[in-house]
Structures are given as structure tokens and as C-alpha cells.
Amino acid sequence: MDITKEIILPCLFSFIGCAAFGVQYNIRFRHLIAASVGSIVSQLIYTLLSMNEFGEIQCCFISAAAVALFSEIMAKLNKAPVNMYLIVGIIPLVPGGLAYYAMLALVTGDNATFLERAVDAFGIAGSVAMGIFAVSSAVRLFKDFRRQAKIKADKAYRTLSKNDKSVKKF
């Protein structure tokens, strides 16, 4: 197996292509590098999983979830919108090639191939969306729980300090 051809080159091309997309969306340099690293994350995980004989749908789901997690972490670190990293990071997973070949089969009248490829393309697009959905809603839930806990602690602190003057701000 040729590691350069199978792993390094696709990662490199997705990095360059996604950085170019980031420029089109007007992302500044510091965020641009981080966002493009997200595309490497998705491409690398996708390649490694598909080598280990995971199905196409599973690969896309897991790598989309990984990119979503990466974007949430980068957004937290850089205090920037999650979208900035997420939009660029999932670009390598977009089933552009499959959709094109499905369309080609349709216009040449090969309906069986068209159906097969269209179902594949829709499945991949859906699994990417579901990967983002899973991670983002988990993060949202975590944030909501933390906010609730903070409000509760705040209330407890206030009632405590009202009754007991010796309690200092901690």
C-alpha cells in the first residue's frame, strides 16, 4: 500500500482546497489555518476508517462527528463562531463526485446505476448532517446543564451570604 498516495496527498489537497474556500468566506489568517486543519482531521479519519473496512456511511458519520467536536473545541479556545470551522471542515466529505456520476447515469438513461449512486450520495450527505447533529446537540445539552448548575450555585451563594455575613465571595 502506498501511504503517500492514499493518505498524505488527499489530506494535502483537502487542506489547500479548504483554505481556498475559507478565503472565499472571508475567514482571517489565524482562523483559516485552524479551520483547514479541521478538513485534514475529517479526511484523515475518513481514510483510516475506510481502510479498516468500515462502511461508507459509518466513515462519513464518524468523521463528521470528529470535525464537529474539533470545531466546538476550536471555537471555545478562540472565542469565535463554531460555523467558521465547521463549514470549512466538512467540505472534503461532501459527496460531489457521487452526485455527479449519479446525474451522469441519469442523463445516459442508466436508471439502475442512477438509483444506486443517488441513494449513496443522499446517504452520505445525511450521515454527515447527522454526525454534526449528534455532536452539536450533545454540546448544547452540556452547556445548558452547566448554565443551570451555575444559576443554582449563584442562588445558593446569595441565600447563604444573606443569612451568614462571614461567607466571603469565593
Binding site: 482546497g17 474556500f21 472565499q24 468566506y25 463554531v82 460555523n83 465547521l86 463549514i87 466538512i90 467540505i91 461532501v94 460531489g96 463526485g97 455527479y100 456520476y101 451522469l104 450527505a125 454527515v128 448532517a129 454534526i132 447533529f133 452539536s136 446537540s137 448544547r140
Partner: peptide
């Protein structure tokens, strides 16, 4: 000609719309 078409039309792929729609559904 197929690779050129796929590569060039990736610039028009609705990435922003798809990401925003998922995040809207979540909230």
C-alpha cells in the same frame, strides 16, 4: 472531463446552507 467538472463545481456546493440548517434544527 468529469474530474474537472466535479472539482470546479465544488465551489458552488451549498456547504453554508447545509451546516446552518443542521444547527437551526438542533436549536
Amino acid at each position: 472531463f468529469d474530474k474537472m467538472i466535479i472539482g470546479a463545481t465544488m465551489a458552488l456546493a451549498p456547504g453554508v446552507a447545509l451546516t446552518n440548517c443542521m444547527r437551526d434544527f438542533i436549536s
